[in-house]
Design a protein around this nucleic acid. Structure first.
Lengths: 349, 349
DNA sequence: TTTAGCTCCGGTAACGTTACCGGTAACGCT
DNA sequence: AGCGTTACCGGTAACGTTACCGGAGCTAAA
């Protein structure tokens, strides 16, 4: 008799009702050999009828893997949320579930999150590190436990792990080259804190482009400021008050570009005539402001997918993959803020 | 001797090394009574030294709860990401971990996510439903398993569960009243699909305000269109081409406001002189465009926190809470897009 | 002295699952 | 007849933890 029990049915219930052993049911359920076709059918039928769901907890305990990926990100802004979506996409496909934790750019919070995910809940980590983080003991602790880590987007040099990053140098190069080709001569860069890897790479691209075009970099035009809108605004004000002010600005994030734009407008300067502006990330917002801001796009979704793929590879391959580094290419989107010459091929954007 | 084993230490290892039973260690570890102070100290010391971490999996299996909350959201835009942060905040405090899944506004994806989280991984759900979703069997299945659900933000009427929502009617009222007080006479509303609860409530507020100010609503000024920028752009174009065009527009989201703004600018109309505009959500972007767009702010972070609190209450209280509905108040932020009279008290914004 | 009541501890079962080993038939072959 | 092989199946231990019960030893009251 099928009781009106409330608890979810287990393998044991099925075994009892079918008068077979739990071993048999277990085997039947996961298509293992050594089970009669009739028996299997019966098991399948009953499990269907009872709406049996295997208990993942018990399974995880037994085979010491949870099929869960811990994802730690500094925040969930447009770019990172998109990357997370990419991770999710691939993970789901491969039978993994992801747990997303935000560190809120806080070192302490990152540690808490790590600890929390660590105690037997996840099979490994996919991480983009907080900007505050300068030591990596909490991550090294993960590796000591033989758990794989894949890094993405913000990848510190001091931590050895397979990683997926954007070719930030190329992005900086593209942006700067574009400005040069538009005839801008004194190009300033608004970079982030000096310890931030992605910032330095983008600046390197900037310098390379200048060199290529034989423009001598002017240290007064290289500004390090905090990675946000307000500081970019202040920094731009200063830039515009110089005797020989820059005629273009490349900011290493769109947030900063917005800040710069506010200062530019306040000063009464016109883009792209008086001054050119290029940002980074190609967030939707750059399309909404007037003028639209040229920006370097990251393939965020792809990058997330790649990170998840790499993670699953790492999990399955046993060989050391800590040297693997996938590099994706950015793409410049040109808008009104920097387009002061007619494009050669006649089309805008 | 402390071996150089690689596996994480268990309660059993500690027991063996201390020559006590595992029961005793277990008791000592969780400050249960019936254990000598000396014994407890010894256990604590050794567990510290071995860096013992209790296995949450085993614990969960035993006591049938995972201390994990499944969060399903349609996407991770600014507002929802903020809400999720609020949930996270409270959950962490209470010893819970959250698993965030994006349904990408897709009904099918929502079902997949639900199934995935359901099989013994989470203790319950906090959900904001996808805009595509019109039947709720997958959620009812959760409730049949006695698992609690808390709904937030987008709450369908057909699903009985405790919920946290914004007072959308009040938001619509505030926005419309503000426009009326600014002297606008023909106020249009860009609403969402007719089956979307939040849209209808905001429109109700709009109608209430008109009534209060004795303005007869004009059906031509009430537009239902898809919840995104492009359709809002198209709808606004139509509005502006009417013989008697509206002199103000209230859109029920900022995305739509942006769309409207593009159409307005194209038409060569000036805000706030020729036409007023008010959005909803107070996303950062409304501050970045020119002119800044007035918008109704949701206390997103608070709302998330409230949802998590409610969830934990539901989990602990056994009594039926499905009637509970927390309602938070929105707040209008006035910017240039709708401010055509000097504020009475002389301050702007 | 007996009894009752502490304090402290150990053994065992259980949570739901799988891995492993062993066993029973039935069959076919020499 | 005896043997090996194959096709099935069951029992048991284990994963790491806690709940429950029972018991030893001691102290204090009757």
């Amino acid at each position: 008799m099928i009781g009106h029990m409330n608890k979810p049915p287990t393998i044991k219930d099925i075994a009892k009702q079918l008068n077979v052993s739990i071993s048999t049911v277990s085997r039947a359920m996961r298509n293992a050999p050594d089970v009669n076709i009739e028996t299997r059918k019966a098991v399948m039928a009953l499990s269907e009828q009872l709406n049996y769901q295997p208990n993942r907890l018990a399974l995880s305990l037994k085979q010491k893997q949870t099929h869960t990926i811990g994802v730690i990100v500094p925040n969930l802004d447009y770019v990172l949320a998109t990357m997370v979506r990419g991770i999710d996409e691939v993970a789901l496909e491969a039978g993994y579930t992801v747990m997303v934790c935000q560190s809120n750019e806080s070192f302490g919070r990152e540690i808490v999150n790590t600890r929390r995910l660590l105690d037997s809940l996840v099979d490994g980590f996919i991480i983009s590190v907080s900007s505050e983080t300068k030591v990596f003991d909490h991550f090294k602790k993960i590796q000591e436990k033989q758990m794989p880590i894949v890094l993405f987007d913000r990848v510190p040099a001091d931590l050895k792990a397979p990683s997926v990053i954007l070719d930030n140098m190329d992005g900086g190069y593209q942006a700067t080259e574009h400005l040069l080709e538009q005839g801008y001569k004194r190009i300033a860069i608004l970079a982030g804190p000096k310890n931030l890897g992605i910032s330095n790479s983008r600046m390197e691209g900037y310098l390379n482009a200048l060199k290529k075009y034989k423009v001598k970099p002017d240290p007064h035009l290289i500004i390090h400021c905090d990675f946000n809108q307000h500081y970019a605004y202040l920094a731009t004000q200063e830039l515009l008050n110089m005797k020989k002010r820059p005629d273009a600005i490349f900011t290493i994030s769109d947030r900063m570009a917005i800040g710069a734009m506010l200062a530019i407008k306040e000063k009464g300067l016109k883009m792209p005539q008086d001054i050119g502006l290029v940002g980074f990330n190609n967030e939707p917002v750059v399309n909404l402001v007037t003028p639209g801001i040229s920006s370097v796009e990251q393939p965020a979704f792809e990058l997330g997918k790649m990170a998840a793929k790499l993670f699953i590879q790492t999990l399955h391959n046993n060989d050391d993959m800590s040297e693997v580094e996938e590099v994706l290419k950015p793409k410049l989107f040109i808008r009104e803020s920097s387009q002061r010459m007619l494009p050669k091929n006649g089309r805008l954007r």
